[in-house]
Design a binder for these strands. Structure first.
Lengths: 240, 240
DNA sequence: TTATATAAAAATCTCGAGATTAATTATTGA
DNA sequence: TCAATAATTAATCTCGAGATTTTTATATAA
């Protein structure tokens, strides 16, 4: 269940090299948007960005259209492209929808997951544990490594789900929440013990306790929302 | 709540004229794919389609990328575009995910819907009723009219939902299920009383009976799945 | 006959320039 | 001084042609 492509739709396998200039530009721009190099609401001018990413105008437009699929970029006819805006209301919506989808997918995984699923989950949790041990030293590379492991862990949890569509939507929402997580981690230190939450989630899942696991997962997601809510309100002012 | 754009992401307002050639080609191709003019799995060659839709190659590529957002087209790097395949398993997945999302959105609507929501719902139901009365004569145009009213009714039901994301995903899934509904309606006559189901759903919603309404909605969606399951298996063989 | 390698054909991907539209600045009149 | 209009600038949208890659067809050898 791990060898299928990342998405039913785009078929862009992120583990290997991008096959085309469009995909390469798409992947680079996606990282830059999530990392906040381009601010929410900021205009994305093709004429400038094509030099930045060293591709033609048409190629860059196609990369932007791929980002529309991820809802990281908004396109308006005859008025170009913008980075998707952020807001507290949006973060609330993302979090609650994630709870709805991920808890359902987790229940499906626990009900139908086989040995291969368990093995992959154990491996993902192990890598996440290592990454969280290294997280103490405030290094950018360790944070990025943790982010990858965290994502892999959450995907491993639900990888035995029967629903490709839920997993597809989950990936979009996880990516969206990554934007908020970055700003909240950057502005205020982590007070909660994230590793303990992950450990409890891991244990309940392996014990096949669907009710407890989904309850922990739900609280886990909503705690990130609380952190965003504590940010100063002027943080969400959009850039023209 | 009705004057907001169709989607948070694409901002393509279908009620008014498309502002660009890309959008126009996108809308036409989308209709053609849903109507089955291009078979599931079929290769979509840019060189041929650009003549068909009378646009340049780059323009048509962009339209295809917009269809990737709807998961109606699958893109593979250096290997072009294909119509998204269909299968019974996919239809099951779509139906169950729709149940999960639409029942939740309906509960939110019933909990928070105001007078404007009720009024819009009553209007949508009225139009749907009229369309279902005219549906007896097996005309293509009346079927298309019914399809529009059915979609508007389902969207009106959940339009007071607090979650833009659920509504966004619902629109994608509804569009997907439309493909299956077309083939099942075409191959076998309608045995169930769809209007009675809609009426019961409408009454329970206006009565603010969330449990009953979501129960009816759930069964309503799953009955369409049953119709697809009754189709001959060779119907889902993909075209090269 | 089957399999492998080579050559031809077709399709995709990529780019830069021209046409159309939106945004900005300057001008005019009240 | 302010508002409305016109001219200028800038950006988007669109297209066709060339460069790569994939696919198909052909030929050769086992």
């Amino acid at each position: 269940m791990r060898d299928q492509p990342a998405s039913q739709v785009t078929e862009i396998d992120q583990t290997q090299e991008p096959k085309t200039l469009v995909e390469a530009a798409y992947l680079r721009m996606r990282r830059d948007i999530i990392e906040g190099i381009y601010a929410p609401g900021e205009k994305l001018r093709v004429e400038h960005l094509k030099d930045q990413y060293e591709v033609g105008a048409g190629t860059l437009r196609e990369a932007l259209l791929l980002l529309v699929t991820d809802a990281l970029v908004v396109a308006q006819g005859q008025r170009g492209f913008r980075v998707a805006p952020i807001s507290i209301a949006d973060c609330e919506d993302i979090s609650h929808t994630r709870v709805l989808l991920e808890t359902e997918a987790l229940r499906q995984s626990i009900a139908r997951g086989d040995d291969a699923w368990e093995a992959a989950l154990v491996a993902a949790f192990h890598r996440l544990t290592r990454a969280e041990q290294k997280l103490c030293d405030n290094d950018d590379s360790t944070t990025e490594e943790w982010e990858k492991c965290n994502r892999a862990f959450h995907e491993a949890l639900i990888s035995a789900s029967t629903s490709r569509w839920i997993r597809h939507f989950q990936q979009i929402l996880y990516q969206q929440s990554e934007r908020y997580r970055r700003v909240s981690l950057f502005r205020q230190p982590i007070t909660r013990d994230i590793h303990a939450e992950h450990h409890a989630l891991f244990d309940a899942t392996l014990a096949r306790d669907a009710a407890r696991a989904s309850s922990i997962l739900s609280e886990h997601i909503l705690r990130t929302l609380d952190a965003v809510k504590r940010l100063p309100v002027d943080f969400f002012s959009q850039r023209a």
